[in-house]
């Protein structure tokens, strides 16, 4: 069942509870190959805002992000306990249906990975999978989403050419549009600008700030300046544990914890 702009279905109606946070993480523990990667994570991620996860490399921030849309399940030897509630629904419940969960969350990975098909098909891929066959509707979705990420004018004449011909910055925007086309509620970004040039980085950052009106955004980043520029909240993770969580300026300017202070000042990286 696919929904496109302007048409509401049962699926979208019964889940919006404005006050409650979109994502609630309760007692989350993740073991990978016997190693304790995430320890007792408890967290409410605020709605319609950008939350950045920061921390030294290897601290578990990417694992935390991938736990949110169950991409960790796909790797071997991963044990997850605890629960992640999205709109009150536990995505780690036994009867939870994975594709439906993942559809709610767009993922923007480190490097852009356009699917091996044309620009048009890249965007139409998601809607088609979820059952949309109408060509006119598909064309509409493609246009809307490409406009959303400011790519329409650049590619509208070559929608049928391969997506790999785009520049890397364009590719990343295409990937964002592709994610938006399945009507997610949440956008997850995994160091999404680390492969991009400064100008493309800025474009993506501005897009994310704009998108937070409609989406809940969670980013992993190792660039403090980027975290400061785009995020409303910051989560500092160290050794698999949450050390500090709060408003951006609170965490970055007046960190309460000593480790956070050292990280923010650049003593730990």
């Amino acid at each position: 069942m696919y929904t496109y702009p302007g048409i509401e279905t049962e699926e979208t109606q019964d889940i919006i509870l404005p006050a409650a946070p979109h994502i609630q993480i309760k007692d989350l523990n993740v073991h990978i190959e016997g190693k304790h990667i995430l320890k007792n994570i408890n967290l409410d991620i605020p709605n319609n805002s950008v939350t950045s996860i920061i921390g030294p490399s290897g601290c578990g921030k990417t694992t935390l992000l991938k736990t949110l849309n169950r991409l960790m399940d796909d790797s071997k030897n991963v044990a997850v306990s605890g629960s992640v509630l999205v709109n009150g629904e536990d995505i780690y419940a036994k009867d939870a249906e994975v594709t439906h969960i993942r559809k709610k969350m767009g993922l923007l990975s480190q490097r852009p990975f356009p699917l091996p098909m044309s620009i048009f098909d890249n965007i139409a891929y998601g809607p088609r999978i979820h059952g949309e066959r109408n060509k006119k509707v598909l064309a509409e979705i493609v246009e809307t989403q490409l406009k959303n990420v400011g790519l329409w004018d650049e590619v509208k004449d070559r929608l049928d050419s391969s997506a790999t011909g785009l520049s890397i910055g364009q590719q990343q925007r295409l990937c964002l549009a592709r994610g938006l086309a399945v009507q997610p509620e949440i956008i997850l970004g995994d160091e999404s600008t680390s492969a991009l040039d400064p100008i493309s980085t800025q474009t993506i950052e501005n897009l994310l700030i704009e998108l937070k009106k409609d989406y809940t955004i969670v980013l992993v980043t190792h660039i403090l300046r980027q975290a400061r520029r785009v995020s409303d909240y910051i989560l500092f993770v160290y050794n698999g544990e949450i050390v500090e969580f709060g408003k951006t300026e609170d965490v970055l300017l007046y960190p309460k914890n000593e480790i956070t202070q050292q990280y923010v000042k650049g003593f730990i990286s």
């Binding site: 439906h100 969350m105 999978i129």
Partner: peptide, 12 residues
């Protein structure tokens, strides 16, 4: 990551 890209769109 290419697989993840498709999976995260809700593909089986």
């Amino acid at each position: 990551d290419l697989k993840f890209a498709s999976l995260s769109l809700g593909a089986t």
